[in-house]
Design a protein around this nucleic acid. Structure first.
Lengths: 141, 141
DNA sequence: GATATTAATGCAAGTCGTTTGCGTTTGTCA
DNA sequence: TGACAAACGCAAACGACTTGCATTAATATC
């Protein structure tokens, strides 16, 4: 298995302790990968960087980190899920339906005009999806 | 297989002809079901209403209709896809993460305040996802 | 520092939504 | 009405993800 770089290890250990998760190198490296990622990663992509950690362990670990609110799951038109750190600036995503290229978009920038497109190296935005998730009154009781 | 109601048959036939798809009762009924649906439906939900049409046929038909721009695929946190007619008023979705209850939301109504929540029978909105899909400059050449 | 406890891991197998291959049936058009 | 391509159904495959269970390793306690 690959080793995490030193930069974020202390912080990662803190986060795991705070969530009463055991500190394992699979988790430290996973956190390290996500902390260095410039875009949401699929399980496969994480796995490639992670080395010889079982996929099952990886699935279980991203789930634990999701439950702690450290990691966020992204759902695209793709059949697979993507993961990113949930801290950091609030943003959305811009995805090329042809090649899958993905860019982060800040909220203030969300104006579907030519400037917006130019800034992000996109020729056109053909579609978008906006979903709200919450708890309905029935489930809130 | 269930029969489509008469109301929309003519329109559906037109749509299929315009897309040079053959007019089959599987397709007419599928379109009829979507035209009467109040929310996006999963393949399973459509299949229940559709009766004895093979799932494979259903998958192929929603795909054809998607290619014609008649049907739109919705991706939620769920592992399965949902389908709705792509015509009609532009709107987004509000989904209960507990029970899966789904409501349509008009764009103008998108203000995350108490009134918004009350209007939709939701206790709280915990999360939302906003994804833009398009063609990047690289793929546009 | 050794040890008990409990969580984390790896492996095998299973599940579920979706897709593919292929032979048969059925719309459509001449 | 018959030819032909498109649509269909069935079986099997696929890929993302999950579950069960026995083994291993991190933490707490002595």
């Amino acid at each position: 298995m690959n080793k995490p770089c030193n930069q974020h290890i202390a912080e990662s250990k803190e986060q795991l302790k705070a969530g009463s998760l055991k500190i394992t190198s699979a988790r430290l490296t996973l956190l390290d990968i996500l902390k260095h990622a410039k875009k949401p990663l699929s399980i496969k992509e994480i796995s490639l960087r992670l080395g010889e950690v079982d996929l099952v362990t990886l699935y279980r670990n991203v789930e634990s980190l999701q439950n702690l609110g450290i990691v966020k799951q992204i759902n695209l038109k793709d059949r697979q899920a993507y993961y990113e750190l949930s801290g950091g600036e609030h943003h959305h995503h811009l995805i090329c339906t042809n090649c899958g290229k993905l860019e982060d978009v800040q909220v203030e920038e969300i104006k579907l005009n030519k400037t917006f497109l130019k800034n992000h190296g996109f020729a056109k935005v053909t579609d978008h999806s906006l979903e709200f998730f919450g708890i309905c009154k029935n489930c809130d009781r």
